[in-house]
Design a protein around this nucleic acid. Structure first.
Lengths: 202, 202
DNA sequence: CCTACCGATCGGTAGG
DNA sequence: CCTACCGATCGGTAGG
């Protein structure tokens, strides 16, 4: 069970390419030539282009889990963890500033009007992410950190700002976009925060 | 100068397809077969695929101008016009619920990490749109309808919510997304509104 | 607007 | 993992 093998190299490259151009425009041929391999060599690791797309999604999921979700899970449940998650993601958007767009923003938009197994997988993962935001909001209300509100509505707004932070920065070559998203989320959470809730540290 | 000719039929179809799948996956062959024409017949109207993409963008611009921007321009300058524009766009997102995604949301995300003439055209148009939002915000402040704020920051937030209203509804099959966007923008503008500014009619 | 074609590239397979 | 293929489709052209 080697993790640095050829399959991982292929997935790293596919993840990198899909973050910029999406999963539909991935081609086995260009992936192979970028890696100095033959088409059949790449193809054989997955069996079909769709299997490669699904494997790339799973790879992206493990990267996000490791780099964004897991660190923020060390913060206390409720408002601190919600805010830590937003800071982690917007900071991640700032860091990847030189190597292409955000995988999930790109792919979620690519598949929102499509159908098929790849779209269904993307939707399931994004739904789980929205559920996470809503659960953290509900916990924050239950813990008396946020005044009661509609978790689905607030999660929609937070996700809108996070997406825009990972997208508008690219379209307008504006490196301040993630910070704008973070500031807007901060203000929104701060106005819903109860007087004795913990501060939102920047 | 006939406006209902073959070229318009091609552009209508290309606009429809690109709203769902983007401009990169447009193919002259599938466009031709959808329209009952030959590939060369479609190709001849534009001369190149890139010219077809650019013509489709111009077509989309005239549709948006007619259906979204022009009606809201009849509202008074400043806050009423800004709010009318947001209502017009989110209402449009609700209406197109059955025939594919929003062209600009799809295309802006498709090209945010790409380069080339098509991307440059998309960026220029989206920048002009952001400028419109910022100018309406500045006017509202100047007219004493909004308390002073950073127009670029508020425009970022409004655009984030508008985009999400046109995207999350598709990804999650949730027809309430445009209304969520409208409600969030309404609340944000209402909290910045001065006491004697005109009401934001729903 | 059409038919008939061009070279390039697509995903995928055979055989090793 | 490779070479050598397959049929299909890509954008584009010639000629009418």
């Amino acid at each position: 069970m080697e993790t640095g093998g050829a399959k991982q190299r292929i997935l790293d490259r596919a993840y990198y390419a899909a973050s910029q151009y999406g999963l539909e425009s991935l081609t086995i041929g260009s992936l192979a030539s970028n890696l100095g391999m033959s088409k059949a060599g790449v193809h054989g690791h997955f069996g079909s282009k769709q299997a490669l797309q699904l494997a790339t999604i799973r790879h992206a999921l493990s990267v996000s889990q490791r780099d964004v979700v897991a660190p923020s899970d060390r913060a206390p449940d409720g408002l601190p963890r919600l805010w830590a998650l937003c800071v982690a993601l917007t900071s991640y958007h700032e860091e990847i500033g030189l190597h292409g767009g955000d995988f999930w923003v790109t792919v979620a938009n690519e598949y929102d009007s499509r159908s098929g197994p790849v779209r269904d997988t993307v939707e399931a993962i994004m739904s789980r992410w929205m559920r996470r935001l809503e659960d953290l909001i509900s916990a924050a209300v239950r813990l008396g950190q946020l005044t009661p509100c509609d978790p689905a509505q607030l999660a929609f707004e937070i996700q809108a700002l996070l997406d825009a932070g990972g997208h508008q920065g690219w379209l307008y070559h504006d490196p301040k976009a993630p910070a704008r998203a973070r500031a807007a989320i901060h203000r929104r959470l701060d106005e819903l925060r109860t007087p004795d809730a913990p501060d939102l540290t920047e």
